[in-house]
Amino acid sequence: MKPAPFAYAKARSVAAAIELLASNDARLLAGGQSLIATLNMRLSQPALLVDINGIAGLDRIALTNAHIEIGTLVRYAQAERSPEIARAAPLIALALPHIGHTAIRNRGTLGGSLAFADPAAELPACMIALGAEIEIVGPQGQRAVKADEFFKDLFETALTARDVLTAIRVPVASGATRVGFAEFARRHGDYAMVGLAACAQADGTRLNDLRLAYFGVGATPVRARKAEAALAEGDVEAGVSALAGDLDPPDDVQASGAVKTHLAGVLLRRVARQLGRAAS
């Protein structure tokens, strides 16, 4: 199919984009790797597309002592090549190769992935595991929202129709930081059936601030808090058992909820090994 007619405007600044979003039924266009597909299928028919690809500075990766700030327009392929991301945000580096295919990664943006908030997407879960902050600019100015509060519901985020996500801020990994990532997909590059992103700070034999963020198991990424508690104490199998109380994945076209819960346990054992926890 072909898209329904729409008007198009190229924004040259974030302020100009916000201005343009004031008009009726306008949508931001970033990498287009989700949006243009939905336009082609006429699943959405906006009146105006506001293209942010020409806004200077939104594709920057900046490193300070405490944080790495990733501009919304940083493309997956650019992030894969970034030595700063490999060093300061290794969890993101682990997740990137699982996203789509090379041509999708050449265009798709990190910010677009968070704004779109597909429940089976890798990066939203990574942001929760990392305790990231999302920078947003709207008509009322700038604000930062914690990843834990950003993902509201199925394809629904803290962004309003007049907001622009401008950057992602992630705490820089230290020598004690441990990360893990694993997913099941039918074919490499497909959206995951179930996936798990994890981050913790190792302290002797303890894992502090352990965060396990599952994706593909609900409307938004889900933190498995009971499993976190068990795994932090070092008991992998208790963590796997605890998942039944943490997750309640609905059946979907890929797998039943029961299968997903089982796979979540398999992933937990794999990720526990990556975090330095041997399965007993």
Binding site: Q33, I36, L49, A103, I104, N106, R107
Partner: peptide, 11 residues
């Protein structure tokens, strides 16, 4: 290399 169906000519 990009998807020709996921980019607009106007872009």
């Amino acid at each position: 290399v990009v998807r020709g169906c996921l980019m607009l000519a106007v872009q």
